[in-house]
Write a protein that binds this DNA or RNA. Structure first.
Lengths: 256, 256
DNA sequence: TTTTTAAGTGTTCGTTTGACACTAAGCCTT
DNA sequence: AAGGCTTAGTGTCAAACGAACACTTAAAAA
């Protein structure tokens, strides 16, 4: 290890992008292909979308850019949750092979600031571009070995999400505009990994004032049609640059 | 702004060190003297203790080192809370003057990972060394303009502390081994900036099991002597490298 | 002995939580 | 048309918790 200035650590942002579909919480991961695969190893693997922070942007902007370049979306719930900077982050052979194709100094250390994003997965249209070698939504229970320390980062994001969701009404970011109580409950149950009582859940949600009932109900379902609800967007305000911040203070706790 | 590799951002850690004395919450700040003060400006100012992260250490280690080099203490509650990386962090004249004396490339951007530390302030003995130009405990209500974006970082730390303290029993880190209920309540009231009901506070604390009564009471006070309590250290476990992690899960909420 | 100061103590009421089981509405099948 | 299937939707009660509230006690000082 040199101490020359050129080996200052690189600083990147990585986005742990959560979605919810088919009753499962999923992560949006990108497929990396090692450019010059001289090895016999499988030459592709998954990673969190991320990029080096550019000279002229701050960390939030860098994360928003990564998200936009991959999904085309802006104004998404996006929150920094932890910085990772172990000097031994980059040890896997595949990681080193990939870096060689991409960086001037593949031996330099990388410190990454991790963000979590919550998006309604049906909104996402993967953008053509450097990320688009292939991006997939993988259920959180089926995440394979990822690049670098991205497994650890994903775990951290999930833990942070579980905590957040019990304090602030942010889970709605993962649902479409209109949703049923059952949708919402299934989402919370998936995130928290435990069953919630239906009646208590409804009572709590309705009393809290974070959702409002629509006159509309489901159509064409082969059972009693469920009422649709919307999240009460009055609780939100728009932050400095397209970010969404919660106005609501405290007082949103859950169940059982 | 160049894009040459030598202008990779620097990565530093900064420690927001909280202490509690004379019924006030305080920050431990260091005094910086601009080496070649060619200006007429006052040539010293306060900053958060911090340092560049070294090649061979991870972020937690760097923060622990900064804390140790300044205070001589190890095994302190120390927790990362946010990374700051605005490209315009370094604009003040004093900051630039100081950097010129210290860095090879004073124009390079610095991204800092901020930690908060909770220590019993009477334990601190300021160590001789690079920080020791002068270090002081300043009440959080009387923090002057600090270096870089350190005011913003301190504010963030205080907000993070307020949140944390309501969820996990960490405030004890700021008190001596033995303390009275009134000490404890005064601490919470200071952190949360609101009054708490004495009887409800006692009940909550005792029922929660996080403190245990000692047989011992105060001596030589000119009023009814208060009982001493200790924090129940069984709730803690020692983390990988002298860090202290909480075992306790959820279920520690406060009042009013 | 009285005064001053801070410690210590219980109860009541309203709210919130958690446990729990049946009816309603629509489609599908026969 | 009737019955079956599936999911939506609803209320009550008991226990725990939270908030409000005032007097007595122990020690030193005057």
């Amino acid at each position: 290890m040199s101490i020359s200035p050129s080996l200052n650590p690189h600083v990147s942002v990585d986005c742990v992008i959560f979605g919810f579909s088919k009753e499962t919480l999923r992560l949006l991961l990108i497929k990396r292909t090692v450019p010059n695969a001289l090895t016999e190893l499988d030459d592709s693997y998954y990673a969190l979308p991320g990029d080096l922070v550019r000279d002229n942007e701050n960390l939030d902007e860098a994360a928003a850019r990564v998200l936009r370049e991959l999904t085309g979306l802006t104004g998404i719930f996006l929150q920094q949750f932890q910085a990772f900077g172990d000097p031994l982050r980059i040890t896997k052979a595949k990681d080193r092979a990939w870096l060689k194709g991409v960086r001037q100094d593949p031996d330099a250390r990388v410190i990454t600031v991790a963000y979590m994003a919550l998006i309604e997965s049906s909104k996402v249209e993967i953008q053509p571009g450097s990320f688009s070698k292939g991006a997939v939504w993988l259920p959180i229970g089926e995440i394979p070995e990822l690049a670098f320390d991205h497994n650890e980062i994903s775990e951290g994001a999930l833990m942070a999400l579980r905590e957040k969701v019990q304090i602030q009404p942010i889970a709605f970011e993962l649902l479409p505009e209109k949703f049923t109580m059952s949708d919402l409950q299934a989402l919370y149950e998936t995130i928290l990994q435990r069953d919630l009582d239906k009646r208590n859940f409804r009572r709590k949600m309705l009393n809290s004032g974070v959702i409002a009932a629509l006159p509309e109900k489901q159509h064409g379902v082969s059972n009693k049609p469920a009422r649709y609800y919307v999240f009460n967007r009055n609780l939100f305000e728009n932050g400095p640059m397209g970010f969404v911040n919660l106005k609501m203070e405290g007082s949103f706790t859950l169940f059982n």
